[in-house]
Nucleic acid binder design. Structure first.
Lengths: 159, 159
DNA sequence: GTAAACTAGTTACAAATGAAACCAATGTCA
DNA sequence: TGACATTGGTTTCATTTGTAACTAGTTTAC
């Protein structure tokens, strides 16, 4: 049964909506992976992934790079520390922050999860042509930039 | 500072990650819009959007179409009902479910938000070429399908 | 040098969320 | 018909999340 107002939004073809739905499914599929394998959540995995890639970072840097809220990072770091997956080294020059890196155990986890994350990605994006993939990345880039700008300016909307 | 293990995952070029980050920013930017304008959250807006587009649906149908958890739908419907934005009509043939539609107030809200959602989308995707947009949609489609399959089979991972 | 402003990170609290239990109604199968 | 399974929807409960307040440390400006 359809409506008869002036303006109807076709959700199925509404890009922001489709983007969010796709991401939520991807996220769900991915979470299951990490979670059930090592008892860590998405936030924890992201911390590990950052440290696995960059070696040593502060919590602040992790938060910035991974677009995670600082409390989320804080908690993820806490649970990973409890699991002995992280090494924390004080910064003599600024005692507020600390340098974080993967412990041997953490490194093992990274080394084990990273390839299966890659494989999972392959399953999801594998059959996409490389032109489409390039286009997809371009769009993601511009949208990410635009949305970020809108999100933190709290931009006034057009009515 | 970089690591020296065998396998390193470059997050910046890892599509699932980028997809999720983009979606989260879009979602955030969007939420701010609806939320601050009518005191409704994303879930509520999605319910309104479905009803605005399709006229009359059961809670179940809304959940299926919008990929929302049934408790989320239930609660969104409850708060929208409290705000007099919904009309509920019993189904004589199956008393478990009820037919939901927008009340005049709900319709007003829809008529007001839908265009500004469109405008917001335009801001985010506006400068994307139509070829890139088409490619983007194709990729979203395939990924959504793939991820959905993986998500609910609880698929065994490749190690 | 010191007061005020600021920053990294944690904690307390309230709201949002999902899993599972639940209720009422419907369907199935003998 | 009547037991059993199933379904639409709500509620309960534990967990997750973000906002705001807070602590400790650092920078700025006078």
């Amino acid at each position: 049964m359809s409506n008869n107002e002036g303006f109807v939004l076709r959700l199925e073809s509404f890009l922001p909506y489709r983007l969010v739905v796709a991401a939520s499914l991807v996220s769900q599929a991915t979470a299951r992976t990490y979670a059930t394998k090592y008892g860590i959540g998405i936030a924890e995995w992201r911390v590990i992934a950052q440290l696995g890639e960059f070696g040593t970072m502060t919590a602040k840097q992790i938060g910035t790079r991974s677009h995670m809220h600082k409390t989320k990072v804080s908690r993820a770091v806490a649970t990973l520390t409890k699991k002995k997956m992280l090494a924390k080294r004080a910064n003599r020059d600024d005692k507020r922050e600390a340098f974080l890196s993967l412990s041997p155990i953490g490194l093992e986890v990274y080394e084990s999860i990273a390839p299966s994350a890659q494989a999972l990605s392959q399953r999801m994006f594998g059959e996409v042509s490389s032109e489409d993939r390039a286009a997809f990345e371009r769009v993601l880039d511009t949208v990410t930039a635009r949305a970020a700008a809108l999100a933190d300016t709290g931009a006034e909307l057009p009515d």
